[in-house]
């Protein structure tokens, strides 16, 4: 297995898909310093993304939204096709 193939397969490992190809990629990665570092950097990307803050909507947004829909007509429901 080449480094390129191993790196491609390790993405499936990060997604939780385990199959034979992924197992072989894990073996390759464990013995290849460059691929090991590559995968560690990808895991770091995942962790950084998960660490990004979740926000509360600005205060008063609910009221502004409710005001904005006052008097706005809703679309008619689409006709259901019955078989």
């Amino acid at each position: 297995m080449t480094c390129e193939e191993a790196r491609a397969s390790m993405h499936f490992h990060l997604d939780g898909d385990e199959h034979l190809h992924v197992e072989r990629a894990r073996v390759h990665t464990a013995g290849c310093m460059h691929c090991e570092r590559h995968v560690r950097a990808l895991i770091e990307v995942e962790q950084e993304l998960k660490r990004l803050k979740r926000y509360a909507a600005p205060s008063g947004l609910t009221e502004r939204i409710l005001q904005s829909v006052q008097g706005i007509p809703q679309k008619r429901p689409l006709a259901r096709v019955t078989m």
Binding site: I65, S68, V69, I72, P73, Q74, K75, R76, P77, L78
Partner: peptide, 11 residues
């Protein structure tokens, strides 16, 4: 988004 949600909800 919520304006579109409101107008399209019946659909």
């Amino acid at each position: 988004t919520f304006l579109r949600v409101y107008t399209h909800l019946p659909r």
